[in-house]
Every structure is written in structure tokens, then in C-alpha cells.
């Protein structure tokens, strides 16, 4: 490691706030870019599953009446 201590790495001769803030914001952005599509795919799958189950139930009940 270039820095002597974690303390020094955090401060970075006064530039630490800028550097760590930039990395934190980028991390948030990257996490959002990865989590949002995964989450929306799950949600789409769940909604489709509900729709399929409802259709199945309707088909079953129609069979029962007959």
C-alpha cells in the first residue's frame, strides 16, 4: 500500500473527501445499474407468474363446470 496508515489513506493529504466522495457516488451508481435490472426482471417474472396462475385457475374452473 502506498499510504502509511488507514488514517492517511482516508485523509489523502486533504484530498480524501473529494476522492472518497467520487468513489462513493460511483459505487452507488454502479450498484443501482446492477440492482435495478435484476429487480425489475424479478418483478416481471412475478407478475407473469400471477397472470399464468390466474389463467390456469380460470381454465380449471371452466373444466369443472363442464
Amino acid at each position: 500500500m502506498y499510504f502509511d496508515s488507514w488514517q492517511a489513506a482516508l485523509v489523502m493529504d486533504g484530498h480524501g473527501g473529494f476522492v472518497w466522495a467520487a468513489y462513493a457516488i460511483t459505487t452507488l451508481g454502479v450498484v443501482w445499474m446492477l440492482v435495478y435490472p435484476a429487480w425489475s426482471r424479478r418483478r416481471a417474472l412475478r407478475q407473469l407468474a400471477v397472470a399464468v396462475r390466474r389463467e390456469q385457475a380460470r381454465a380449471d374452473s371452466a373444466q369443472g363446470v363442464r
Partner: peptide, 8 residues
């Protein structure tokens, strides 16, 4: 020249 801020 820029010190540590260049790490961005």
C-alpha cells in the same frame, strides 16, 4: 502535480 486527487 495534482497530489492524491488524481485518483478520481
Amino acid at each position: 502535480r495534482q497530489g492524491n486527487s488524481y485518483r478520481i
